[in-house]
Design a protein around this nucleic acid. Structure first.
Lengths: 112, 112
DNA sequence: CTCATATGATCCATTTATAGGTCAAATGTC
DNA sequence: GACATTTGACCTATAAATGGATCATATGAG
């Protein structure tokens, strides 16, 4: 039991999380904002900002996104292809997709 | 008290959140995955996936990122400029930035 | 060097999310 | 149309995150 086995998290998710954390911390410092100041603006506690900047997976996504937005980080920008693609696609074709999905015994679309 | 005043969240954060939620839902359906199946793969409950796909700000960011990764959504891709910029910058210049930030009475860098 | 303070870490009380189950409705298949 | 099942919504007990405090350390200013 060397590991409390908190929760399984894929390597990619962990990396993405800590990268976002680094981005937030860096952006905050560049703007000359104190951890406490960022916490106040985001309406959260100082400790939570510290966990966010550490990449803690348990943080509420709303708090993380808010902190990121305050320091000027735009996760979804019109310039980013991924965003544009999904933006265009969601509204239009989402209605065309099946409302319920069959369990797909063996045929999961893993082509990417 | 018509509003329980749950928590303040900027319009941008709310939009980004619900967009990510739509992306996940869309990607899941396109892959022919059931909500239950996605929940199992992510190691979370079915109800949590439903809240994630609804854009609930209270969801743990780790669970959201994991669900997104499973359905093939890469928030941070090498192709995306924002990612590349911050990746290159964080490691190198983060050490050069001040370790502690002065409260900056009036001079917050809001130039962006 | 001396001092004010930002940061990191920890502890505890409370709020909140999460898991797990159930029920009704909608959907797509046969 | 009848059926199997996915989905959405709700509920409760448990687990976890959050807020708020405190302490030690490190950092930068004077």
């Amino acid at each position: 039991m060397s590991k409390p086995e908190t929760r399984a998290l894929s390597p990619y998710s962990r990396d993405a999380l800590s990268l976002l954390a680094q981005m937030i911390r860096r952006a905050r410092i560049e703007r000359g904002l104190t951890v406490q100041e960022l916490a106040d603006r985001a309406g959260v506690s100082r400790g939570l900002i510290q966990r966010i900047e550490r990449g803690d997976p348990g943080c509420a996504i709303g708090a993380v996104f808010e902190a990121a937005a305050i320091v000027g980080i735009r996760l979804f920008d019109a310039d980013q292809p991924t965003m544009a693609v999904h933006l265009a696609a969601s509204g239009a074709t989402l209605a065309l997709l099946p409302k319920t999905v069959r369990p797909s015994g063996g045929g999961v679309k893993d082509d990417f």
